[in-house]
Design a protein around this nucleic acid. Structure first.
Lengths: 159, 159
DNA sequence: AATCTAAATGATAAAAAATATCATTTGATA
DNA sequence: TATCAAATGATATTTTTTATCATTTAGATT
């Protein structure tokens, strides 16, 4: 934990940004909730518990900064809110998500399974890939018994 | 074109919805711009050219309806706007997109390349897939000569 | 340690997208 | 043609995010 804060401090310094108390509080909230996919509002409320004086704008600015430096990633699960996630350490790319249309939970595939497909894209489309997003929408193992006809699951909310 | 309008009319009827003049105008705009990825605002402005009396709310409602019936899909390319695309006829799933971080253009992969990966997801995660979204972010063939260091391309806007 | 300055912050206004409300109109059916 | 639920248009409202700007702060420089 302390190490990761330190590491992020260095990444900020490298681009002449400071790790201010507000930024540190925000980073710590992100680290403490690494397995979740927090929105800016979520982060704001959590940070406020420990640093009540922080402003919402600062949280937005910090998340944008961390995103610019590729320390975190922006995510969009189609609910109209941008969510944030730590970039997997050392990983070249973003990992994949499984969104359950029944309970709304989001599971992760932490490995990158897209290698072969990326090669094809680079070759057949002459497209140089920098990142990707892969999301599956369906019914998770927890809900499969409660859903009789998965084909009828409402997928209109999916973007 | 006329056939597709007719087909959509039948899909609506099947769920006891009417193909009103406003809905038809909206559908025609979508059909005429099938290769684009129009936002609700885009559709609204285009429909207004031919049917100036239409209201923005009606366009939103029509797009939502078409989406509910899986006639069109919602898309999100990370610019804060929902976009819409015709669902590929007969295709089980959604196709894939290549977003150029340099020029912003969006190309398509109309085949579904995810078969093997989907099998793995179903097996290893016990997750029943209904749909998916796959997007690659990078540098397209048109821009590759103008971009020296692709790794530096701004990917912070990506969600 | 006191001073300085650009960077950062907090409060809040504003913008932008999408949804909700509601009186009015319309289209299919009787 | 009369009826009535469905659909529409205008607009208010909500929600998320960005912009503005006066004030504060962190770190460098004396």
């Amino acid at each position: 934990m302390e190490e990761r804060v330190k590491e992020i401090k260095q990444q900020l310094s490298a681009h002449s940004y400071k790790l201010t108390p507000q930024r540190e509080a925000t980073v710590r909230v992100l680290l403490e909730n690494e397995q979740d996919h927090l929105s800016a509002e979520d982060v704001y409320l959590l940070v406020k518990e420990k640093a009540p004086e922080i402003g919402l704008a600062t949280v937005y600015r910090t998340l944008e900064l961390l995103s610019d430096l590729s320390i975190i990633h922006k995510l969009n699960f189609g609910d109209g809110v941008t969510r944030y996630e730590f970039r997997a350490e050392g990983a070249e790319h973003h990992h994949h998500h499984l969104i359950c249309l029944h309970c709304g939970r989001v599971d992760e595939i932490t490995d990158d399974w897209l290698g072969p497909i990326e090669n094809r894209v680079q070759k057949e489309f002459d497209f140089q890939i920098i990142d990707h997003r892969l999301t599956f929408h369906g019914i998770c193992h927890r809900c499969k018994d409660q859903v009789k006809d998965p084909k009828k699951a409402v997928s209109s909310k999916v973007t």
